[in-house]
């Protein structure tokens, strides 16, 4: 199994930490994983994206030319990355900001109103974790229970105050998706 995911959005939407969190969970599960952020000029321009590859064997390339999954947190990312998604792939969009009327016909769209959901927690900045929870439910790349269990380790030192908020956000997104 080799699964490639692109996480994309504005700088500041927590796109990189979404990818980093999932990559960390995959590592702790004992899988092969690579995480490649976009860097340099592009980042300064305000958009951000990263590619996470999770596999059961050695990973050849950390780049995804045809990913199985794309997470798009804003309109420009939706436009840019839906074009590289594999036919039949899943595109998770932040429907609070993204209009999906121009979506390709051969892909699956999952709309998550992350801003509205995050506002329920009174913290718009955890919209990314809401999305990650929903994405993990839909993609099943890593175990959700495992991620929640190891959240303290994944978030790292100095973030202990934020564990509960992040867990609530992940669960909110996870439970938003119906079986």
């Amino acid at each position: 199994m080799l699964i490639k995911t692109v996480f994309s959005g504005f700088g500041g939407q927590g796109v990189l930490s979404m990818g980093f969190t999932m990559a960390n969970a995959a590592m702790l599960e004992g899988r092969y994983v690579t995480y490649l952020p976009s860097y340099g000029v592009e980042v300064r321009g305000g958009t951000a994206n990263c590619t996470v590859v999770v596999s059961d064997e050695e990973i050849a390339s950390p780049v995804a030319s045809e990913p199985e999954f794309v997470v798009a947190m804003n309109q420009p990312s939706f436009v840019r990355f839906q074009s590289i998604l594999q036919s039949g792939g899943l595109l998770c969009v932040n429907s609070s900001l993204v209009n999906t009327s121009s979506a390709r016909g051969d892909i699956e769209i999952l709309a998550v109103p992350t801003s509205e959901l995050a506002e329920k927690l009174g913290q718009i900045k955890v919209a990314n974790m809401v999305m990650l929870g929903a994405f993990i439910k839909a993609s099943n790349i890593v175990s959700f229970d495992f991620l929640v269990e190891h959240l303290a380790e994944i978030l790292g030192e100095g973030k202990s105050k934020l564990i509960k908020l992040n867990r609530d956000a992940l669960e909110l997104g996870y439970n938003f998706i119906k079986e």
């Binding site: 590592m27 994983v33 490649l36 952020p37 950390p62 780049v63």
Partner: peptide
């Protein structure tokens, strides 16, 4: 190279 520097791995 740029990729080796930027990418994260365990």
């Amino acid at each position: 190279d740029g990729m080796l520097g930027q990418m994260m791995e365990p």
